[in-house]
Design a protein around this nucleic acid. Structure first.
Lengths: 333, 333
DNA sequence: GGGCGATTTGGGAGCGCTTCCAGTCCGACC
DNA sequence: GGTCGGACTGGAAGCGCTCCCAAATCGCCC
């Protein structure tokens, strides 16, 4: 390892020009004669020169990186395939730029502190913030941050200037309307975490649809988006409202759990109980029966977050974006 | 945004000391009197000073970051929950340090080029490299890289100095032995991608176990680790060797697909056909029937990669690490 | 051939921090 | 009271790059 790195000065010297000139050709700026430009080019690949990103960052006051922060006490949250998809989306647009993606799970006290500093001191050029819980102190910091911040999903409690979200409420409404249209009248729901925007939005959509249909929205159990929580909630539902004939579940993971409990309870799906999920995860097509669910464009969410941030970095204005969701009808309802 | 950032000079001035002294207290180095140390501390939080990471990086020649690179033409590969788990593991140990995690999906030509530069020019302090395909040119670069590189999973074709891997071969052998012990004699396998280390290792383990048992390892179909591929391969298997009585599937995702095809074909699991998967993904416990599978400690894999890299950065020696896998017996075999 | 505007050129001052080094200061010891 | 070693101290030289600016050069037209 570790022969010293080639510097711009060496390139300049070899090419017989000044460092300024060499710098200009690297950033292909104007005011360099054809001849010198060529000389520098040759020197560059003769020497195998690669500009030092750190030095450049210091000189230009631009970090050359953006951070994706998932705010959560529970690191395992990230294990949800949802985030992986988002990352893929983000990465696909960042790859077209010279920006690096730094990932912060913001789990420990220490890493949260680092994130806060970062928000205040422009150690990164921009920040994408996801899955903020209600009352997360990061929210306030983000608002008056020194760097552009775009939110993924609308946080609870306030409306950030820049965010991209999926139409959770609309999707939930469509799902519930589907249940109503199919003839169900005793419709229950398993909610997600209600201290998150997506959880409440889906719950709200459910309520709206029932209100419009003139039905009661009293059959409610609360889950946490995860499979086991869904199973627990379904058991609770069955226990308290044995007459239910349909259930809107706020995530496919929970729906999988719910399906299992229903099967064990001897309720046929969709004949006795219709089930609709949310997310359209890969395995939704292969549950028994295949799960009717609300599809949301997760990669697109990531892509649009990244694009929005890029626009902000370029000094352009930008406004919140709500991505459409879409009901995918399969056998479960 | 954008009141200028507080610099060390301002801190020093306010504390009435030299910049050198201020620097020393920040890095809590020796040779600064109790009094001055205190003065600087006060100035720091009066001013809200945060050191500029870029400047520090330039001065110390240390980037303060490590990169996790997933080498792949297909960005969607990362959507496999496997990587999310690895990231969680890595992140958990990095959080205890001052290192940032930068993520490179290394998909486009452009980002691969950036990664290559990085390997040559120490723009990051270390690199973790995963899922290298056979003949990936990155491999060679990584070997003579200017920064420490630890591999996640053993790449095909050569043995890197530093890697951590799961005992894929041993796990596959155990799984297959389990099938043999249960009395199956016409045992098939669905392999993963054979241009990856994990794929071949699992295939090898399968072959070994059958050889030891004196059985033929001829019933083979090739998959790609993904669910649909598993389904296709199972169909092929059933078509060519209708007499098979067990199948070792190199990933749970594929096993889910295989289970579906078996059900559709009217084969009872485990009565007609025993099935064992690999990975122990979350949903493995909830398939019908619940899937017997090989558990591998994915988060631990990430953790150990990060630890190994940290050790290397600290100048310590380190040697390859193989994490144990473990058969989890459920109903499918 | 002289003059003028437009380009090109390279010197140099930073960006904010670390770290070497020479000098200062202090208490202790003889 | 003088010496000496050791702990402080701050000046200054970088780390590698960008970019402003004054100076030099060029081409062109009359």
């Amino acid at each position: 390892m570790s022969k010293r790195q080639v510097t711009l000065d060496e390139v300049a010297e070899r090419a017989g020009v000044s460092r300024s000139a060499a710098s200009r050709v690297i950033n292909n700026a104007p005011h360099v004669s054809r001849a010198k430009r060529e000389a520098v080019r040759q020197a560059i690949d003769a020497l195998g020169y690669v500009p030092n990103a750190t030095a450049r960052a210091l000189a230009t006051q631009q970090a050359g990186s953006v951070v994706l922060a998932i705010s959560s006490e529970d690191p395992a949250l990230f294990a949800d395939p949802f985030f992986a998809e988002v990352v893929v989306g983000i990465s696909s647009v960042l790859e077209e730029t010279d920006l690096e993606l730094v990932l912060s799970l913001a789990t420990s006290q220490r890493s949260r502190a680092r994130l806060e500093q970062l928000l205040r001191t422009r150690q990164a050029d921009g920040v994408m913030l996801m899955s903020l819980r209600e009352d997360d102190p990061l929210a306030a910091l983000a608002q008056q941050a020194d760097v552009p911040v775009v939110f993924g999903g609308r946080p609870l409690g306030f409306e950030p200037s820049y965010y991209v979200d999926a139409d959770n409420r609309g999707g939930a409404r469509a799902a519930t309307e589907h249940l109503v249209a199919a003839g169900s009248t005793r419709i229950a729901t398993i909610t997600g975490r209600l201290d998150e925007g997506a959880g409440t939005a889906r719950y709200r959509g459910f309520q709206e649809a029932l209100a419009v249909a003139g039905l009661e929205a009293t059959r409610v159990a609360h889950g946490d988006f995860a499979e086991d929580g869904g199973a627990r909630a379904m058991a609770e539902l069955l226990d308290r409202w044995p007459d239910l004939d349909a259930v809107f579940v706020a995530s496919d993971q929970m729906a999988v759990g719910a399906l299992r409990v229903l099967r064990e309870a001897g309720r046929a799906v969709p004949d006795d109980v219709r089930v609709v999920g949310f997310n359209d995860i890969a395995s939704a097509a292969h549950t028994v029966p295949p799960l009717t669910t609300v599809h949301q464009p997760i990669q697109a969410l990531g892509r649009e977050m990244a694009r929005m941030l890029l626009a902000l970095l370029a000094g352009e204005q930008s406004s919140p974006l709500i991505l459409p969701t879409r009901l995918v009808v399969r056998a479960s309802a």
